[in-house]
Simulated assay, not measured.
Amino acid sequence: MSQFQSLRNHFLIAMPHLEDTHFSGTVTYICEHNKEGALGIVINKTLAQLPVSELFAQLELPNPNSGLSESEEIVPAIFEGGPVHHERGFIIHTGGSEKWESSMQVSDELALTTSVDILDAIANLQGPKQFLIALGCAGWEGGQLERELQENAWLTCPATLPVLFEAEPEQKLQAAAGLLGVDINLISSQAGHA
């Protein structure tokens, strides 16, 4: 049996033949991965039906984008983080986890926070330097992600801050694949078997 290898702080890049509506064409940032399972946040599907102003209004927080042009927006979009826990917010951000009520350190540079105190800080322009806000997450039971990898449903590579925070949502899939030297558009959508 092969030794377990954690994909924490990695990107999962959906292969073109992955037809699951939740994950087709996605890049997922893996925040936790151990023998019990995995947790990730889809980072390239925006929730067009939920404007940033509405989310912050629902939480009775100031709109951090108020008065800013589209190019200056502090929170450009809210992401559809995955099919699990749609009602919960997940914030991937730079910096440490010690400042926030419910937070976990993912890497030396990144943390995942689920408490509203970080949104309050963002609304009041005191939040982390770089962040991504998502509703919902993706989860895998123990061994499930490993099986999907064996079935060639995903490519994986170490995560980078530019892809996570700087690439436009519609460019993240190709940008993440580019980290592997792959043009995702040239990969066949047909699964092959030798």
Rank of each mutant, 00 (worst) to 15 (best):
H10S: 11
F11Y: 12
I13A: 03
A14L: 08
M15F: 10
P16S: 05
D20F: 11
F23H: 06
T26I: 04
V27K: 12
Y29F: 15
I30S: 04
E32D: 13
E36N: 09
L39F: 11
N44W: 02
K45E: 12
A48Y: 11
Q49A: 13
P51H: 11
P51R: 09
E54T: 11
E54D: 13
L59V: 12
L59S: 14
E60W: 01
L61C: 11
N63W: 09
N63V: 03
E70L: 13
E72K: 13
E72A: 15
I74E: 10
V75S: 01
P76N: 07
F79W: 06
E80V: 00
E80T: 00
G81K: 12
G82C: 10
G82S: 06
H86W: 02
E87P: 01
R88Y: 08
G89P: 06
G95M: 00
S97P: 14
K99Y: 08
S103A: 14
S107N: 02
D108L: 01
E109P: 01
L110A: 00
T113A: 09
S115F: 09
V116R: 15
V116E: 14
D117K: 02
I118E: 14
A123H: 02
L125P: 02
Q126H: 10
G127W: 02
G127H: 03
L132E: 12
L132V: 03
A134F: 06
W140T: 06
R147I: 02
L149M: 15
Q150R: 13
Q150G: 12
E151R: 12
E151P: 05
